[in-house]
Design a binder for these strands. Structure first.
Lengths: 178, 178
DNA sequence: TTTTTCGTTCAGTCTTGATTGAACGAAGCG
DNA sequence: CGCTTCGTTCAATCAAGACTGAACGAAAAA
């Protein structure tokens, strides 16, 4: 089955020479790099190009993706706050559109992952202190290795900085205007 | 073969109840989440706990990892500027230690990926403009979809913010003190 | 009611990439 | 020179997860 979006709605059969399709694939690549299914990235890319409400089955057609994958990945993107499910009066199908502030929400997703990691590091540091010392040779004098402290500080700093960026983006508007 | 680090150097056979080992596994998880091999993450975690020069074969022993994987992943981390290969006089083996400013370099790696994506988006935008219009229906009035512009702006903003953070960390010291 | 059209779920397939282990060349040591 | 000990490379294995397609239940339409 064809892996590239249905070119019927665009201009090029391959997609390599159409900025729209290239952009969509690019978001797929990038998202995949970030550890997300490629299809989710392509969906997001499509919505960036065409934010208007798009029906469930039209998504499947335009991207040549099985309905199963559409269901899974739209729910994934919905959970991350990147797209929204909207009711279209008189229509039985589900419709989706780009969320209000997709990029702001994307940042929140990233910081959430970081915060989770950071908190387990904190727990490890506490456990390390509580457990006393003298269990392993190389930690005799210093309860918490400098690297662990540095890692914790790094995550804290990152989270703060990114949420600052999110707040700035949100204030400036943040939503994607067509 | 055992998947957990060799507990001989620590205190617990499972690693679940030793902050050091938990931390190492945690970094493995996090790095894997970020799309990097888990082993690379565990290596990095080990160096955060024990930054001192560690020999090639000791890495294999302590983490119960094949020499092939050590070779591959140390080179990966080296390329990312997270660890360094150091010469230990009189020793035939390769030794590694934590890089000077691992987290600063980590940020640069992230921004590099983002910049790459951003630049291809820029190219798409230019191509979209140059190609004139009137090729697809939904882009008749507006050359570049708002979502593409927003995505580009987002990446630019992210890169700027993160490099600002990197600069701040570098100035503040940035290196991990033992 | 029956029929059709939805979206979801899940078992199965398939792709991708990590990991290993053996083979190899280089380089110090005897 | 052999012999050993390195680190690298590569084919083969293995595992994780994406993706599909069919089966399913719900709900509108007829």
């Amino acid at each position: 089955m064809n892996q590239t979006p249905d070119p019927r709605h665009f201009s090029s059969p391959t997609g390599d020479d159409c900025p729209h399709l290239r952009f969509i694939e690019r978001m797929g690549d990038h998202m995949e790099l970030e550890g997300m299914p490629r299809i989710a990235g392509r969906l997001f890319g499509l919505f960036l190009v065409d934010p208007g409400p798009i029906s469930f089955s039209e998504l499947a057609e335009r991207l040549s993706i099985s309905r199963g994958s559409i269901s899974t990945n739209t729910r994934l993107l919905e959970g991350k706050g990147l797209i929204e499910r909207v009711d279209v009066p008189g229509e039985r199908q589900d419709y989706f559109r780009l969320a209000d502030r997709p990029f702001v929400n994307m940042i929140h997703g990233i910081t959430a992952r970081m915060r989770e990691t950071m908190e387990t590091i904190e727990a490890d540091c506490r456990a390390r202190k509580d457990a006393g010392v003298a269990q392993s040779a190389e930690a005799a004098g210093e309860p918490v290795p400098g690297g662990m402290r540095a890692a914790h500080e790094f995550f804290a700093e990152c989270i703060g900085t990114l949420e600052g960026l999110a707040a700035r983006l949100a204030k400036r508007g943040g939503e994607v205007k067509p």
